[in-house]
């Protein structure tokens, strides 16, 4: 019933806490492994046994649909016992500290813990207190490594390469862990990265992240191979960081006109969930240049790749 993985790639880390610290070789290795799982996931029989007997806990302090469900699916397809814990049901709601939660979980002897938390650095804090492997499924505005990996896999499959491409990341860079992970990954892989946003949504010092900075879409999308849109949170729309939805869409929302500033064969990405009519127009989101649905497919594959790679480092009986 099992198909043996072709790739013998091993990741030299116990945890995956961020893209920061991964080498280009390790990133490529994970993408290659992900590629194999894309094929597997398209077959009728999707099951493998590499995580058989292992316990994977998905600990989500922040609501998530696609990340949580794809981690769950990924773990199950690899044969792990997967348990989902979300904050709504956990003791954290009752005032337990993060470290107490870690100690409690540790006592249950999980092998892999997948964590999302609203505070930057919370996943690292947990990892330091736990014996198992920890995967960061998004911590505050810091990192979201599996998103960057799935984006890279999507780009590589469609463009045949990452090196030398111009990727424009547009929108709420300030609060985005997706942007940070992608900037690090794309730089490591030799892509050119440009961020496009109003100044209120750019973190100070962004120009020293190895990116070009543009403050309008015409300039920002010029020559882009990939246009990566980011979600703008509702509470940031009305006068705090930007004046209104209509102004934001007018100047920064990706519609066909603005997309035409990019290369004719430019492809559009979005980590989801989308605000249609805020950062992206439906015609573009559902159009021929959109990779948004493919990103979701790659999400399951890349999470299987990460689980598989980390599991090879787990202690064996």
């Amino acid at each position: 019933m099992t198909i043996a993985p072709k790739s013998s790639f091993v990741l030299s880390h116990r945890h995956l806490l961020g893209i920061e610290g991964l080498s280009a070789t390790e990133i490529s290795g994970l993408l290659d492994l992900g590629e194999e799982f894309v094929e597997l996931n398209r077959q009728i029989e999707k099951k493998r046994s590499s995580l058989r007997g292992r316990t994977q806990i998905n600990l989500f302090f922040e609501a998530s649909t696609r990340t949580q469900s794809s981690f769950e699916l990924a773990g199950k397809r690899l044969g792990a016992d997967v348990m989902n814990m979300s904050v709504g049901q956990s003791a954290m709601r009752k005032g337990e500290t993060l470290i107490d939660t870690a100690i409690t979980l540790n006592a249950m002897h999980p092998d892999i813990l997948v964590v999302r938390h609203h505070a930057s650095g919370a996943v690292e804090l947990l990892a330091s207190k736990l014996d198992c492997s920890v995967i960061n499924a998004g911590d505050g505005s810091h990192e979201h490594p599996t998103q960057a990996l799935l984006d890279a896999l999507t780009i590589r499959r469609n463009k045949g390469r990452i090196e030398g491409l111009l990727v424009a990341i547009c929108g709420d860079i300030l609060h985005s862990r997706v942007a940070r992970s992608n900037i690090i990954l794309l730089n490591a892989m030799g892509a050119r990265v440009r961020v496009v946003a109003p100044s209120t949504l750019l973190p100070p010092g962004i120009e020293r992240f190895g990116v070009e900075v543009a403050r309008d879409m015409r300039e920002g999308l010029a020559g882009a191979d990939i246009v990566m849109m980011l979600r703008l949170q509702r509470e940031r729309m009305n006068g705090s960081y930007v004046p209104s939805v209509s102004e934001y869409f007018h100047f920064y929302g990706l519609d066909q006109k603005k997309l035409s500033y990019a290369k004719p064969d430019a492809l559009v990405m979005h980590p989801g969930p989308m605000n249609r009519g805020v950062e992206i127009d439906s015609i573009v989101a559902d159009g021929a240049q959109s990779l948004i649905r493919e990103q979701v497919e790659m999400g399951v594959a890349i999470r299987m790749a990460v689980l598989e790679a980390l599991s090879r480092n787990l202690p064996h009986a």
């Binding site: 006068g239 004046p243 102004e247």
Partner: peptide
Amino acid sequence: LTKGLEGKEMTEIGL
């Protein structure tokens, strides 16, 4: 500069 001159939320400066 702010909606309703309330000093809380900026107006649609671009538009």
